[in-house]
Amino acid sequence: DHWEIRVGDITIHLKDVDEEIIRWVEEALRNGDDLEEIKRWVEEVLR
C-alpha cells in the first residue's frame, strides 16, 4: 500500500502503513502539530 497525506502545501508519502497511523497523522496535521515531530513519530512506529 502507498499513502499520500495532503494538508495544505504539505504532502507526506507513506508506504505499508496501518490506517490507524494515517488517521493519527491526519489528525495531528489538522491540529497544527509540528511536522518534524510527526515524521519522527511515524518513523518510530514503522521501525
Rank of each mutant, 00 (worst) to 15 (best):
D1N: 15
D1C: 15
D1V: 12
D1A: 12
D1H: 14
W3N: 05
E4V: 12
E4P: 06
E4N: 05
E4M: 07
E4W: 09
I5Y: 03
I5R: 00
I5N: 02
R6T: 14
G8D: 07
G8E: 06
G8H: 08
D9F: 09
I10S: 06
I12Y: 15
I12H: 03
I12G: 03
I12E: 02
H13C: 07
H13I: 14
H13R: 10
H13L: 14
K15S: 06
K15P: 03
D16M: 04
D16P: 12
V17P: 06
V17T: 09
D18Q: 09
D18N: 14
D18L: 14
E19S: 14
E20W: 15
E20H: 09
I21Q: 02
I21E: 01
R23G: 03
W24M: 14
W24R: 13
V25G: 00
E26M: 15
E27W: 12
E27T: 11
E27L: 12
A28E: 01
A28L: 06
A28V: 10
A28P: 00
A28Q: 08
R30M: 11
R30C: 02
N31K: 13
G32M: 11
G32T: 10
G32L: 08
D33M: 15
D34F: 12
D34K: 08
D34Q: 09
D34P: 08
D34N: 14
L35F: 13
L35N: 04
E36R: 06
E36L: 06
E37Y: 14
E37L: 12
E37T: 10
E37M: 10
I38K: 00
K39S: 06
K39I: 14
K39C: 04
K39P: 01
R40S: 11
R40Y: 03
R40D: 04
W41M: 10
V42S: 00
V42C: 01
V42H: 00
E43K: 02
E43H: 05
E44L: 04
E44R: 02
E44D: 10
V45K: 04
V45T: 07
L46C: 05
L46V: 05
L46D: 01
R47P: 06
